[in-house]
Structures are given as structure tokens and as C-alpha cells.
């Protein structure tokens, strides 16, 4: 995303074109396992939405200089700090139906992959404003999927909506099971794909170009490059040692190779 991106564009891309659940396929586990009723889906989507915004903004503001291996655990600790009060509130107000329905998935939102992916791929590389836009857009995208799946599964699987009975003559128990949600998500993904292809064909073309470029074979090194290989590039393979050195440098500690060897 460019620096001049508007909120509308961010919303279009984050919530629709690159929807976290249907396109990026992250955060599938809570959607499939816990969004069996509308109320549960609403609770999970609100929790995830808040967590996504707070963690992404904090990551963009403070964690740009930290190495990756230490950033990810910090996201989860912040997530835990946000989810714990919600869990205590559920216990205090005896909302056992919601808590039991969501099982382990509400506490697990603290360590969900959506937050880690968005913080790492976007927030730490961009300004606070853009990180906020991205978090809101992705939060809306994932919440919409939560609410749609929760509503459809409750109506078809339990013949009720938000706990109110609809007195439908037939119920499909399978919709409350994970396979029902997977089928539903498959159809939603296909719908989104056809919608994107119809109304945003430019993005489809960009995706195709990207895919073709990724599939191209790597260029053959010249003789000089083979004899004298290039030094590590910014996009070179991830190395924990480099990250550790960066982190120590940021703290004002520098270790030369000789010192390291001696130690």
C-alpha cells in the first residue's frame, strides 16, 4: 500500500479484496470451530477487532526497530492483556453460555494468527495511520465473515437467530459441525472471487502478474557472482543471529566476530 492511501481504499483492499479469512486463509480455526451461533460469532469478532486495532497500532508505533523473533511474542502478550479482562468480565457477569460455547477459542484469540500476520506484514513497515487503517479494514473483513457464518449456521443448524427460535420445519445439524462451516466458507470465497473479478478486475490482473513472476525460474548467476557471492541482502534468508545482532546494536552493545568466537 502506498503512503497516500485513503481509508476507503484500505477498507476495500483489507476487508474485501484481501479478506483475511476468505483470501489470506488466516484465522480459520476460530471461525470454523466457534462461530456456531450469532452471539458467539459476535463476541469473538468484537474481541478480535479490538485486539487487532490495539496490537497493530502499538506495533507500528514502538516495534519497528525490534527484531522479529522478539516482536511476535510481544504481540501475543499484548493480546493476552486485552483478552484477560474480557474473560474476567464473562466470569463476573456469569455469561457461561457464551463462554462454554466458545470453549478455548476466546482465550486463544490472544495468540491468533491474524494479528501476527497483519503486524508483521504491514504494521511494522508502515506509519501508525496506515496501520490503523489496515487493522480496521481487516477487522471489519474478519468480523463480517464471523457474523455471516454465525448467523447462517445458527439459522440452518438450530432454526434460531441470536437465541430466538424461528420455528423452521427442517434443521440441518451438519451446519453446526465444522464441515458445514467449511462448505459455507468455500461458497463465500467463490462469491468473493467472482465479485472481485467483476468489479475490481485490475486487482485480479495484478495477482496474475505476481503469480507468473513468482513461478519464473531464478536467473543464473554470472561467473563473477558465483566466485564472489554477494553479501546478505535486505531480503535475504531470515537469520536469527542477524536479528540478535540488530537487537544488541539497538541496545548499544556490539559484538565483533572475534569476541563472539572468543566467548
Amino acid at each position: 500500500m502506498s503512503a497516500n492511501i485513503s481509508f476507503k481504499d484500505a477498507l476495500k483492499k483489507g476487508a474485501l479484496i484481501y479478506n483475511p479469512v476468505l483470501v489470506q486463509l488466516v484465522g480459520l480455526c476460530p471461525v470454523i470451530a466457534a462461530s456456531t451461533t450469532f452471539i458467539q460469532a459476535l463476541s469473538l469478532s468484537v474481541t478480535m477487532f479490538l485486539e487487532l486495532i490495539v496490537v497493530c497500532v502499538i506495533a507500528s508505533a514502538f516495534f519497528k526497530n525490534l527484531p522479529r523473533w522478539i516482536r511476535v511474542p510481544i504481540y501475543f502478550i499484548i493480546g493476552l492483556a486485552l483478552v484477560c479482562p474480557i474473560l474476567y468480565a464473562i466470569e463476573t457477569y456469569s455469561l457461561n453460555d457464551i463462554s462454554l460455547g466458545m470453549k478455548i477459542y476466546l482465550p486463544l484469540t490472544a495468540v491468533n494468527s491474524v494479528v501476527a500476520v497483519h503486524c508483521e506484514q504491514f504494521s511494522v513497515k508502515n506509519s501508525i495511520k496506515l496501520a490503523f487503517y489496515d487493522a480496521v479494514a481487516s477487522g471489519i473483513g474478519i468480523s463480517a465473515i464471523f457474523l455471516i457464518t454465525g448467523a447462517v449456521r445458527e439459522i440452518l443448524g438450530k432454526a434460531s437467530f441470536a437465541g430466538i427460535s424461528l420455528n423452521l420445519p427442517i434443521t440441518f445439524k451438519g451446519m453446526a459441525l465444522p464441515f458445514g462451516c467449511l462448505i459455507l466458507l468455500g461458497f463465500l470465497a467463490a462469491l468473493l472471487k467472482s465479485f472481485t473479478a467483476k468489479y475490481y478486475p485490475q486487482t485480479e490482473k495484478e495477482e496474475e502478474v505476481k503469480t507468473v513472476t513468482e513461478e519464473l525460474p531464478e536467473p543464473v548467476n554470472t561467473v563473477e557472482e558465483t566466485v564472489q557471492p554477494k553479501t546478505a541482502e535486505p531480503n535475504a534468508e531470515y537469520s536469527a543471529e542477524d536479528d540478535l545482532n540488530e537487537f544488541l546494536k539497538s541496545l548499544g552493545i556490539e559484538l565483533s566476530d572475534e569476541e563472539g568466537d572468543a566467548k
Binding site: 434443521t171 440441518f172 445439524k173 451438519g174 451446519m175 459441525l177 464441515f179
Partner: peptide, 8 residues
């Protein structure tokens, strides 16, 4: 299989 699960 769908009928078995939904209308056992």
C-alpha cells in the same frame, strides 16, 4: 453422508 449427519 450429509443426510446421515443431518437427519440421523
Amino acid at each position: 453422508a450429509f443426510a446421515s449427519v443431518c437427519f440421523k
